[in-house]
């Protein structure tokens, strides 16, 4: 089984460190450990590098050692930037990351909530879930909010199909559960349900006017859920 690659962004000089529980969560992953430092426009990135490189690299290498010890393979990057989002997007594309972690403290790792939006991107979602949680004592709940133009049968096919695929990839079928809701707003429903779980896995949506105004659903969920969120990235497009 190939390790799913997961981006772990850390603002390394702002006192952020690798949150507790992250090494355990990512033990089966290939981690792209991104230390980044955002500087104001008046400062040249190279100027910040001259002053902070040593200190920042030392911290990153410390985190890298902890992740490696827990079983992950790790690549690190240290980026000085004026624009954090541009840097994170570029790292995801360059390193072909399946998912990005919103790094948060994790007390126990017993159950995972997987928000399934639809068939689009489901292959990448499956690779992340199976890659990280196969053969481990972790309960996986596949959750879908049924929309008005879907029938219950459609949703069963969707979730059962995913459950079968995960089982094929060595996720214990007895630990997979499915759950659906109807007539609720997906973001609220996921965030509410997430409170009883340790980790959330969800997809990144296509940007629309609504996401432009209200932010990405994954960000909205991450704002409300206090634990780590794995955001599965869209298939890279060629036109970029």
């Amino acid at each position: 089984m190939t390790r799913p690659s997961v981006l772990v962004p850390i603002q390394v000089l702002e006192g952020e460190s690798l949150p507790e529980g992250t090494p355990e969560l990512l033990t089966n992953a290939h981690v792209v450990l991104l230390g980044y430092h955002v500087i104001p426009g008046q400062t040249a990135p190279g100027q910040a590098r001259m002053q902070f490189e040593e200190q920042a690299l030392a911290r990153i290498e410390e985190f890298e050692a902890v992740l490696t010890e827990a079983g992950a393979t790790v690549d690190h990057r240290l980026v000085f930037t004026h624009d954090a989002q541009q840097t994170i997007n570029r790292q995801i594309a360059e390193n072909d990351c399946l998912a990005a972690l919103v790094p948060r403290t994790l007390a126990d790792l017993e159950d995972v909530l997987v928000a399934v939006r639809g068939t689009v991107g489901i292959d990448r979602l499956a690779r992340v879930v199976a890659g990280l949680f196969a053969d481990r004592d972790i309960d996986v709940t596949l959750y879908h909010v049924t929309s008005e133009d879907e029938t219950d049968a459609d949703v069963d096919v969707l979730l059962e199909g995913l459950a079968d695929r995960l089982a094929d990839e060595n996720v214990d079928p007895d630990r997979i559960e499915t759950r659906t809701d109807r007539d609720v707003k997906p973001v609220d429903a996921i965030a509410d349900l997430a409170e009883t779980y340790d980790v959330v896995v969800m997809g990144e949506s296509d940007p629309t006017l609504a996401t432009f105004v209200f932010g990405m659903p994954a960000d909205q969920v991450a704002d409300r859920f206090l634990g780590p969120v794995l955001v599965v990235q869209r298939e890279p497009t060629d036109d970029e």
Partner: peptide
């Protein structure tokens, strides 16, 4: 003098040890 960077790409200036300067 500071050592020269390893490579210059469309989006970064890249130094040793995975250190990059983002072009913004």
């Amino acid at each position: 003098p500071e050592p020269e960077p390893q490579a210059v790409t469309d989006e970064t200036t890249a130094h040793d040890e995975g250190v990059e300067l983002e072009r913004t």
